[in-house]
């Protein structure tokens, strides 16, 4: 911990590198090809996968491989203030970054002209919804039997004033003293350890950045273990 930082203790009593309690469950929507729930603290994400199935309109089809379509949405009541449902600039951005991360691992060359739909809903939000959504989406894709290179585990890292933290919650995200709060969503591959998603809005020094990557990597391994356990026991809620 940085001694000059004004953020000395986390508001919910966690260690700086500690993630919130996780709940994961696979197979929550029986009619879908794949579905999963992923919860960290008060943030809850549900992902549903349908497909591969024929893509319409036909002009969008790729004759060489299937395509992936991600739809991320926060429910109207997911935050304290009502959020307007539907497409927003923010949800479009999140659709794109999740789609880019997932497209790297799925292999749809066997399904030309088809589409895999990934629908992510956030019934309850307390920061880190894009990483929770991504974690749920990967589990749902695996359960749907989509060919994949590896799994992904994402974690919302951040810098609160000068302190580096893992799995930021809403209260920390709104911290305004000193340098304020910087959000760094990270996503790692389970086998290759490659980074599939990294966003950074704000300032961070190179040393701090290297440190936060290490912290994120460790946290993602913990998340991966829970994802695997949930997939190996479909229908059972796994806590960690």
């Amino acid at each position: 911990m940085n001694k000059e930082s004004s953020y000395k203790k986390r508001s919910d009593g966690r260690e700086f590198n500690e993630i919130r309690p996780i709940k994961a469950k696979v197979g929550i929507v029986p009619s879908a090809d794949g579905s999963a729930l992923f919860e960290t603290g008060k943030t809850r994400a549900i992902a549903v996968v349908r497909g591969p199935r024929t893509l319409h309109p036909q002009h969008m089809q790729d004759p060489l491989k299937g395509i992936l379509r991600v739809n991320y949405q926060m429910m109207a009541f997911s935050v304290w203030d009502r959020i307007k449902p539907g497409i927003s600039r923010r949800s479009l951005e999140i659709n794109k970054v999740i789609e880019w991360a997932l497209s790297e691992i799925v292999d749809l060359t066997e399904f030309p002209g088809s589409v895999v739909d990934v629908l992510i809903q956030i019934p309850q939000a307390d920061a880190g919804t894009r990483v929770a959504g991504l974690n749920a989406a990967v589990m749902a894709l695996a359960q749907a039997g989509v060919p994949m290179k590896e799994m992904l585990s994402a974690v919302a890292a951040g810098k609160i004033d000068k302190t580096l933290v893992i799995d930021v919650n809403k209260e920390e995200e709104d911290y305004e003293e000193g340098e304020g709060s910087t959000d760094i969503p990270l996503c790692f591959g389970s086998f290759s350890k490659k980074i599939y998603l990294l966003q950074l809005d704000g300032k961070i020094s190179i040393e701090n950045f290297k440190e936060i990557l290490k912290m994120g990597q460790k946290a993602s391994e913990k998340i991966y273990k829970i994802q695997v356990e949930a997939l190996k026991n479909p229908g059972k809620e796994v806590r960690g």
């Binding site: 292999d107 399904f111 359960q143 749907a144 039997g145 989509v146 994949m148």
Partner: peptide, 24 residues
């Protein structure tokens, strides 16, 4: 030898394969 799909892994002699549990 890595898995490319969610399913049951089977090792028969030297051959390793997966019996998928789901998928189209």
């Amino acid at each position: 030898i890595l898995a490319n799909k969610y399913g049951l892994a089977e090792i028969e002699g030297r051959l390793v394969k997966i019996i998928p549990l789901s998928g189209v």
